[in-house]
């Protein structure tokens, strides 16, 4: 059991409000990914859970127990830092052993744990090396082993893959998912990479400027965003968002939800446009299409349309999302929904 609850968490640095009255539940056993643009307060939130950067006000609960006043070591959480924070003067083994020694774990138990964990993480042959001689991927594994060996209730990971090269990042992603399935412990994972968030998270918390924008499963975040920020942050290329003429309300559709045809098709939303650019990416092609003074991106499996030619675009009704003047979603059950849709 390890469920985390934030109650009215606020964090200020001087007068600057970094986190603004955060209320949040992180489910036991979830792989919760916190995502948001750089500087939005993700690390700050992790540090509050760990107890190394206390909140200005509000409370944190772990399994119903108020841990706001507990020192870091008493919280039963382990953290993997963005720069790994491996003790450079200790060997790999000493790094992993340090916390165990401080917790007065007997020697044979320590040996057993280190053996077990370094087998799982695959650093067995590195145990006697000094960190200075290791690669980024190896350091990352050591940081992971150091966290795992304490058998914490919660793993906190701050962009652990951001310092690795692209290939390694993809394979580590799979390994972390497997690790989570095996340990069934709560993971709180911070990233600014949406692919990581979508592929790893069982739940996603999307933040911006110290405020939670939406908290949901990856598919809900993608298909049913609460607001414009969420809709545009997730998805690549990002969602096309267009204004209703002379209005503050906007509508949007994802590039991959658009059908291209040479003749007008039977779609709720049909427009004739002109292909301005074409980018062939292998399995799919990105077109930029202009019409009525708008420019939209379209992702298609069809490669047959040519640049500088006219084309018809079509979008089905459920794939069009509405956003009000405060950038909040207008959902189909909203009284205003049909009224705005009829204007398209």
């Amino acid at each position: 059991m390890a469920e985390i609850r934030f109650e009215e968490i606020t964090k200020k640095f001087g007068d600057k409000v970094i986190l603004d009255h955060i209320n949040l539940d992180i489910e036991d056993g979830s792989f919760t990914v916190m995502i948001g643009p750089s500087g939005c307060g993700k690390t700050t939130l992790l540090r509050i859970i760990a107890g190394i950067g206390p909140q200005t006000s509000g409370k944190v609960f772990l399994d119903g127990e108020d841990i706001s006043g507990l020192p870091p070591a008493k919280r039963n959480v382990a953290m993997v830092f963005q720069n790994y924070a491996i003790y450079p003067t200790m060997t790999v083994k000493e790094n992993i052993e340090f916390g165990l020694k401080n917790n007065k774990v007997p020697k044979d138990e320590r040996e057993r744990l280190i053996g077990e964990i370094s087998e799982i993480v695959g650093i067995h042959e590195l145990l006697d090396r000094k960190p200075g001689t290791l690669s980024g991927g190896q350091r990352q594994r050591i940081a992971l082993a150091r966290a795992m060996v304490k058998k914490p209730k919660v793993f906190l990971m701050d962009e652990p893959l951001s310092n690795l090269d692209a290939k390694l990042r993809v394979s580590m992603r799979t390994e972390l998912i497997e690790l989570h399935n095996r340990l069934k412990t709560t993971f709180v994972y911070v990233t600014h990479d949406q692919t990581e968030a979508m592929s790893m998270g069982t739940r996603i918390i999307l933040m911006n400027k110290g405020v939670i924008q939406q908290e949901a499963t990856p598919s809900v975040i993608y298909q049913d965003p609460d607001n414009l920020f969420t809709a545009q942050f997730i998805g690549s290329p990002q969602m096309n968002v267009l204004p209703f003429p002379d209005e503050k309300v906007r509508y949007g559709f994802r590039p991959e939800k658009v059908h291209l045809t040479n003749e007008p098709g039977q779609y709720f939303y049909t427009r004739k446009g002109h292909i301005v650019t074409k980018e062939m990416l292998g399995s799919e092609t990105i077109y930029q299409v202009r019409y009525e003074g708008n420019s939209v991106m379209i992702k298609s499996l069809e490669d047959s349309f040519e640049q500088d030619h006219d084309v018809y675009i079509g979008v089905k009704k459920p794939n069009i999302l509405l956003f009000d003047e405060d950038e909040r979603r207008i959902r189909p059950d909203d009284a205003r929904y049909e009224q705005w849709m009829s204007k398209l």
């Binding site: 190394i52 070591a73 953290m79 924070a85 401080n102 917790n103």
Partner: peptide
């Protein structure tokens, strides 16, 4: 010396 090293040590109950 990066602060994270000290914080890491605090999490390690030092």
């Amino acid at each position: 010396i990066p602060d994270e090293l000290l914080e890491s040590a605090r999490l390690d109950n030092a």
